[in-house]
Simulated scan of single mutants.
Amino acid sequence: MSTGDKIHNTGDKIKGTAKEAAGKAVGNERLEAEGKADQAKGDLKQAGEHVKDAFKD
């Protein structure tokens, strides 16, 4: 996994965590759901990169 991909995936997870927290703080369920989706997106991308790395070896 390249460093750029790691940073981007971590960024998605951080952005999702922030959105989820903001949604909870203001009672906005849509924003909270978007945050959870962003976190899942980051996790999925990271898992895909790990699979690619496994096949490179």
Rank of each mutant, 00 (worst) to 15 (best):
V26C: 11
D38M: 10
T17G: 14
F55V: 09
G4W: 06
H50C: 00
G16K: 08
K36E: 07
T3F: 04
A40Y: 03
E20P: 03
G11E: 07
G11S: 15
K13W: 05
A22H: 05
G23R: 07
G35E: 02
V51A: 14
G4E: 14
A40N: 07
T10E: 15
E34G: 02
A40H: 08
K24M: 02
M1R: 04
K56G: 02
M1K: 02
D53G: 08
E20C: 00
K24W: 04
A18W: 04
A47D: 15
R30Y: 07
H50A: 10
K41C: 00
E32S: 10
E29K: 08
I7A: 10
N9T: 04
N28D: 14
T17E: 14
S2H: 09
R30W: 04
V26D: 14
D43R: 12
D53V: 01
D53T: 00
G42Y: 08
A33S: 12
A33R: 13
D53P: 03
G27R: 10
V26H: 05
H8L: 11
K6F: 05
L31P: 11
A25V: 01
R30G: 10
K15W: 06
G11M: 13
H50E: 12
K56N: 05
M1C: 02
K52S: 02
K36Q: 08
T3V: 06
T17P: 12
K24A: 11
K41E: 12
I7V: 14
A40P: 03
A18R: 05
E32I: 00
K19F: 11
K56M: 03
L44G: 10
K56C: 01
H50D: 13
K24P: 06
K15F: 09
A22M: 08
E49T: 06
M1Y: 02
E29D: 05
G35S: 01
G23S: 06
K45P: 00
G4T: 04
G48W: 13
Q46P: 09
G11L: 12
E49H: 11
K24E: 13
A22C: 03
K45N: 08
K13A: 04
G11W: 08
K15M: 11
N28W: 01
I7T: 11
K19M: 11
G48S: 13
D5R: 10
K19V: 00
G42C: 08
V51D: 14
K56E: 11
